[in-house]
Write a protein that binds this DNA or RNA. Structure first.
Lengths: 215, 215
DNA sequence: CACTAGATGTCTACGCTGTAGACACCAGTA
DNA sequence: TACTGGTGTCTACAGCGTAGACATCTAGTG
């Protein structure tokens, strides 16, 4: 009867399944098999599958390392580091990304990170609403990037991706050029830093103008 | 026997179902019911459900209005307008957003938009890789925003969202403040324009420095 | 020590899903 | 008129999440 089933065992087994075989592979039956236990056993610890998914999201979120950010560095670097930590955690479990995007980006587990980011930016003189926008953008972008990475890995049952060879150069000259330069599928991660740099630029300008009007 | 079933009828019925009742409501059986036809009839026109979903994505993409962009305006405005068109199309069908995020952001239907955006930015002196990054960011952010909007509408089967009343102010002072200011759930759409403005700023600076080194 | 109450794992079963395969019919061509 | 290919229908299968009954093991109480 294997009396020792716990929420943590279920969560980590679930995460293992998702990491190895993708999100669609995570069924309650598969989860049971993975732990050598009846599928229904999970329901003694988790009232439904949704809760299990929340738990998986929380597990990934808990891997984000906020302590590694050096508070002595300029706020711009801190923000960049935080964004990178976030993306890194997600990219470690790309198949979880759809869950993160779907189940709100601010589930309990990520509150810690959000608070940290707010702190960095407001101390730098940013307005709360701008800081929130920046955070949302970082979260959404990271989730999107990870999701794209996940989708690229899984064949995704009969969908026609990868038209690399077959896009008509007449109609799409620039796209063709970009594809040939490899700018399409590569460097999706650069998108985040590009966007973050952009938002930092805006925050800098705004903070400066506020400081100027204060004097 | 209703001899007149077409791919378009199936696609538009599917989109109607998704818009009204969410993505999880779209089953082949439901699709059949919607059209007063046997569930299996759809398989005469679409080899599997994945193709149907691709078709739905394409339908939404086709609603993006690239012609409405005024070429006489400065490129910054054009880019902003394009981003807004993209988001608007997605927000018209928020429940489709997960599909768009999952099935690559550059399915056939959106190539047109991507090419247009590339054109705007390269004519303004941007490098192709930077332009691609900007486009990816716009696409991912729009999809993320729409997805968040979709998730907020659907109760999402037993997940604990909306901790508005119950987040401990001691631990999360800034978050609490932001929540009280309503900066959390409102204005997700502002996130896109904030990020776009940021990336425009970066593109401007880069273009300027390139022009300077040319002389 | 005996007994009980609760927690936990197991089993069966229901209605849902996508879709394979056989069948029935109808339109157009030879 | 006979046939052929396209289309809609029907049945069936394996898989899903999970409700509800049952069995068993553990801890606490007298």
């Amino acid at each position: 009867m294997a009396r020792g089933l716990t929420r943590e065992m279920l969560t980590s087994a679930a995460l293992r399944i998702v990491d190895n075989d993708g999100l669609q592979a995570l069924s309650m039956r598969r989860l049971g098999t993975e732990l050598g236990v009846d599928p229904m056993a999970a329901y003694r610890h988790l009232s439904n599958k949704g809760i299990l998914l929340d738990e998986v999201v929380a597990a990934v979120m808990s891997e984000i390392d906020t302590e590694a950010i050096d508070a002595s560095r300029p706020w711009q670097d801190q923000l960049r580091a935080l964004a990178l930590s976030y993306l890194t955690a997600l990219m470690a479990h790309p198949h979880v990304a759809p869950l993160i995007a779907e189940r709100s980006l601010r589930t309990a587990g990520s509150l810690r990170v959000v608070e940290k980011a707010l702190q960095i930016m407001t101390e730098a003189g940013a307005q709360l609403s701008d800081a929130m926008a920046t955070i949302d953008a970082i979260g959404l972008l990271s989730a999107g990037i990870a999701q794209a990475a996940s989708a690229a890995q899984v064949p995704a049952n009969g969908t026609a991706r990868d038209f690399s060879g077959l896009l008509p150069p007449r109609e799409f000259p620039l796209l063709t050029q970009a594809a040939e330069a490899g700018a399409l599928s590569d460097g999706l991660a650069d998108v985040l830093s590009f966007a973050v740099d952009g938002m930092i630029a805006v925050l800098e300008v705004k903070a400066q103008s506020i400081r100027a009007s204060d004097e």
